[in-house]
Design a protein around this nucleic acid. Sequence first.
DNA 1: ACAATTACTACTAAAACAGTAGTAATAAAT
DNA 2: ATTTATTACTACTGTTTTAGTAGTAATTGT
Lengths: 142, 142
Amino acid sequence: MKNNFRSGCPIASTLDIIGDKWSLLILRDMLFHHKTTFKEFSSSDEQIAPGILSSRLKLLISYELITKQKLEHNKKENIYLLTEKAIELSSILIDISIWGDKHLRELNKIDDIEGLDLERSVIISTVKQRYYSMVQNIKIIK
Amino acid sequence: MKNNFRSGCPIASTLDIIGDKWSLLILRDMLFHHKTTFKEFSSSDEQIAPGILSSRLKLLISYELITKQKLEHNKKENIYLLTEKAIELSSILIDISIWGDKHLRELNKIDDIEGLDLERSVIISTVKQRYYSMVQNIKIIK
DNA sequence: ACAATTACTACTAAAACAGTAGTAATAAAT
DNA sequence: ATTTATTACTACTGTTTTAGTAGTAATTGT
């Protein structure tokens, strides 16, 4: 797909991949809410349009942040799963969550997130562990 | 300014403020490269257009992430400085930098950043300390 | 066999971004 | 003192991205 990076800066380059309006929210839904299907991504509070969701999933696949697979005994649904590369974005997502929780309450009604008061490293390892467990329990076709 | 948040999610809300194509790069230039003027922001590798820079600076001011001030003995230049709220985004910017440095080398030629191999907490406190020192040495009009 | 669900694609409208040119105020050079 | 250069923008046009809705094919459930 498109590979036009604005510069060699690691921050700019990362933003060129996941710095759009939706990618990190899709990854959030996968990592924290264990969503796996197009339908589930479509049903989040933020109401992503199907065309945008479709194009973003394709981009995330092309960057190897997610994979698209099939379940056994189900030819209709596609299952999207995070790669290790994307799971390593956990710390960024959690830092963003902590920052928003702390600083945006005067601008917007912010949802309370359970466990966000725990130590950062504990949150990160718990989130990752839960995701790995979820993946282990689903039967995908190899 | 515009205050339409997509949801109450702290991640979505944070992205509604700084999740555009340029805000984090402006904050990066301020925090890491100690840039303070419109001219300096215009001259970064990524080539932001003046109209976009202008509108983003206004938004960042409205969210109280930066302030606009004047230097003593200089009526022309405007000096933009980070607020504490924005300085607390340091950890996010550093995590993004570390992730990009680690994962994007096969997609793009990534610049080597000095000191990025140090421990995360050390990087964060060093960056903050350097920024505070820089601010202390400039004479702004109160 | 029929209805519902899933995963999209297609289309049009609206918004954001890109690129260039131009202007007013101040500062520097002659 | 006058001209030139710099800074910080605004204004404008064109392109790209995003939003929103409608529709379709394949599969699954009843």
